[in-house]
Design a protein around this nucleic acid. Structure first.
Lengths: 340, 340
DNA sequence: CTGAAAGCGCTAACAG
DNA sequence: CTGTTAGCGCTTTCAG
């Protein structure tokens, strides 16, 4: 019931047109050795003429699909844009193509499996909510690079930002400015469990450590919310119902920060409360937003992930783990605490 | 050199384990008729046991890949999020999977071809800069739905917003408020050529018609810029160098509007100049932005596109063209012109 | 340097 | 209801 009308000019047709064997054509399109220039020319002419395109499916059945898969969480996540841009840039000039599979539900299992089923030559996993041992197993059958996971597998590579360092920069900055009442806005436990290796867990940990080191252990205040901007907005709005207000909010990522910003703007509290996000998504720089945020260099992350995948495909066998140092970008959303 | 380690449990293995023929297994996984309950049970057990997953490549070679391809321009485009969300929702519960191929360069040819090469069962094309006749040819070999193209093909379906209506709403609103000096901010000619069927061309046309109808033909002022926020920002900034300022700016899409907003904010001109965008992307609603914008109902567009593709795959043969009526959402970025 | 032949994993007639 | 048999389009030995 599906997929007819394959007008399909096949390798056979090309061979016929060029008056050679299928094998010869195959060699030409793969740039394999052992073809005379004359034959190559004739074959290429026929290919051009017939507008022939090799079937990736047939190819994948034998060898490689020359396709890399990128599993991503919800596309609304701006940070992804950076990663995808980097990945695409890294692929330029290679014969590989990337396809993106957006996570279906909360997790990305379905999407990842869909990629594997499609015989991609390698997979970059971005969704944080996938089980490490499950990935480990997957990595046994296809090269995998996991983005943003601190856990170090032996079977797959990782590219991750130094979340402790990033958080440290934020906290040094805020504490240095004189802030004492700093709230950390983050997501639910599923993603912040200590030891899970999920970035948010480390950011939380870094926050708590910095507060403790500053002698503010009893002022630690972690507020959890859902992963959307709306959730963050409602949560922060509620937070502002009770005084005293904190003097600073450190959000686990920019989407949360944008939600927080919405609440602050509506309460006209932006002058009193500093706000810092994480990811430095494109919007942070917009003058109407001007959000201080930690730049994770997502483009570089995407680029590295693809580079590592390509290495794996080319034969590398030991796992590699790449850490990228983030940097805080200060904008108008943060400053010294209000003086009384 | 690529794609080894296919631990590959094949249909053969399952057949062996269940003590039946490959055909039997095939029937079970396809839910085809002619299998005894007993056999079905045994086969399913074996599938479970071996953790078997059918190879999409092998399947595609014979029949369908059960994969739909979505070609999209740059992922930074927020409007896409709506479309993809709608598409994913429409696919829920079907056996189809979507893969996204981001346009490589300016156009989307490479990405579209990549999808076709991968034997997808249908393609949704979003990039506006693809040649209609090229698409026509493609549509001869695989079902195609084109988003946001007014041109009516006989071979592929289209889903498009009623851009004249949307523009009409904007202009009625602005003119009704008393605006006379209204600038239209749009992209370069490649995408605004009259008759091209590209939405931006119609928005431009609608703008000119509305101005003319209001007796403001000589106040028509079209400003062209690049497609990024940065371009729009610089262009509008330059625009503000010379007085008198317009009292309203109607941007061709939200990204341009955001750039314009940046320039207005920096010049502190927001009180004097009304700004309206198009697409009603998620950011427009943010209180720090609060951009008036035309909602194209992208989610519905994505949903329809997939529905139509599924119909085509199921056998429909005549082209169908679906038009969605947009609606203007007014926010704080627009209001009456300043009174002197 | 060139071509014949044997599959890759699966589906789709067709026979039993 | 079940199994046998041909391929789908391509790559890849292996002879010529």
């Amino acid at each position: 019931m599906a997929g007819r009308r394959r007008q399909a000019v096949t390798i056979q047709d090309v061979a016929r047109a060029a008056g050679v064997s299928r094998a010869a054509v195959s060699k030409v399109i793969r740039d394999a050795a052992g073809v005379s220039p004359a034959m190559r020319a004739r074959v290429n002419a026929a290919i051009e003429e017939l507008n022939y395109r090799p079937s990736v499916a047939a190819r994948a059945l034998r060898g490689a699909s020359y396709t890399l898969g990128l599993e991503v969480p919800h596309l609304g996540n701006r940070f992804l844009t950076q990663i995808v841009d980097g990945a695409l840039a890294a692929l330029e000039g290679t014969r590989y193509q990337t396809i993106i599979a957006p996570a279906d539900g909360r997790e990305g299992y379905g999407a990842i499996e869909a990629l594997a089923d499609r015989q991609v030559d390698g997979i970059v996993v971005v969704s944080p909510r996938v089980d490490a041992s499950w990935l480990e197993r997957l990595a046994g059958s296809v090269p995998v690079v996991m983005l943003g996971r601190h856990h170090r597998s032996v079977h797959y590579d990782t590219v991750v930002g130094d979340d402790l360092a990033g958080t440290g920069q934020v906290m040094d900055y805020l504490l240095g400015l004189g802030h004492r009442s700093i709230v950390h806005l983050t997501e639910d436990f599923a993603v912040t469990t200590p030891g899970s290796g999920v970035p948010h867990a480390l950011r939380l940990q870094g926050y708590e450590e910095a507060m403790t080191a500053a002698g503010l252990k009893d002022r630690i205040r972690v507020v959890r919310t859902g992963q959307t901007e709306e959730h963050a907005r409602a949560t922060v709005d509620e937070l502002l119902d009770t005084r005293p207000w904190p003097t600073a909010v450190f959000a686990g990522h920019d989407q949360l920060a944008l939600g927080a910003l919405a609440a602050l703007v509506e309460r006209d509290a932006l002058g009193e409360i500093s706000l810092i996000g994480y990811d430095n998504t494109d919007l942070a720089a917009h003058p109407a937003i001007s959000l201080s945020s930690v730049d994770q260099h997502g483009t570089e992350m995407g680029r590295r992930a693809i580079a590592m995948l390509l290495e794996r495909i080319a034969g590398r066998d030991e796992a590699q783990h790449h850490v990228i140092t983030p940097s805080l970008t200060v904008r108008r959303s943060s400053g010294p605490p209000p003086t009384r």
